[in-house]
Design a protein around this nucleic acid. Structure first.
Lengths: 132, 132
DNA sequence: GCTATTAGTTTCCTCAAGGAAACTGGTTTC
DNA sequence: GAAACCAGTTTCCTTGAGGAAACTAATAGC
């Protein structure tokens, strides 16, 4: 019938020789996007780092320890992190009510991530300082 | 003269017993902030991951490989990354001009950071999928 | 001369991030 | 009953992140 069909189909597109490894790369790139969706922004990593390095804290403690953050932002970010099951919010029956924020076991799996981030950051500071 | 001055000064503030470790914690928290300033946002990590996992690329290649990004954003993000010395921009004297983007040796020190991020992201996907 | 490709830039737009300050509501202390 | 502390919420505002589409400029092939 139509013998022109075949050659044209074969020449238009170059086949991906290494499709399997390409899929794996794409999965990694997607994973990178996922993490940044959860951790991106000015405050989340800082809040996690404070809780991770200084231990559980109440709302007012966090407000004082996460330098520069305001009550509204803190409230919102804590909520986000709670939804992503990275920390828990526990209301304590104290005289003036207090709320304890703590990193969950799942949140603690972020420790290596934060640590790698932090150690790169510490080196980066030095690198930049030396140049200027 | 005024013997009321001393007692009041001594009782107002509690001293920080462990000031040295506290300073170190604060340095870490600052470092975390630094890194996020450089890598935060929707695209930077994705661009770095693409270049890291797929190798050098030209502008148009990146436009096709970083899914969803537009020319303006790509241009701006590449510029930012170049300023932070994480990648280089090389104009090649080809017929229609091409520009090669490559991760610098310094940018390559981000590899462990990206890898940790990615491996947490991959696990996170599984964790979330299982629940819903 | 028309179209295509590369590497952007420019313009105009929207929506979300983030911030300051005032306010709520309950409790304790003086 | 006034002041203070905790844990927020609400309101109003500004800035910046990000996006779509059109445009520039150079070159090559048809």
């Amino acid at each position: 019938m139509n013998d022109l069909l075949l050659p044209e189909n074969l020449t238009t597109k170059r086949l991906d020789i290494n499709e399997k490894s390409c899929q794996e790369q794409n999965r990694k790139i997607l994973a990178a996007r996922d993490v940044m969706e959860i951790l991106s922004g000015k405050w989340k990593i800082q809040i996690l780092a404070v809780l991770m390095y200084k231990g559980n804290m109440r709302f007012m403690d966090l407000l004082r320890n996460v330098h520069g953050i305001g009550a509204k932002m803190l409230s919102k970010e804590l909520h986000d992190l709670e939804i992503n099951q990275l920390l828990t919010r526990t209301v304590l029956p104290t005289k003036p009510i207090t709320v304890d924020y703590a990193i969950t076991p799942y949140g603690k799996t972020l420790r290596p991530v934060i640590n790698t981030l932090v150690s790169w950051g510490l080196t980066h500071r030095k690198t930049i300082m030396q140049q200027d």
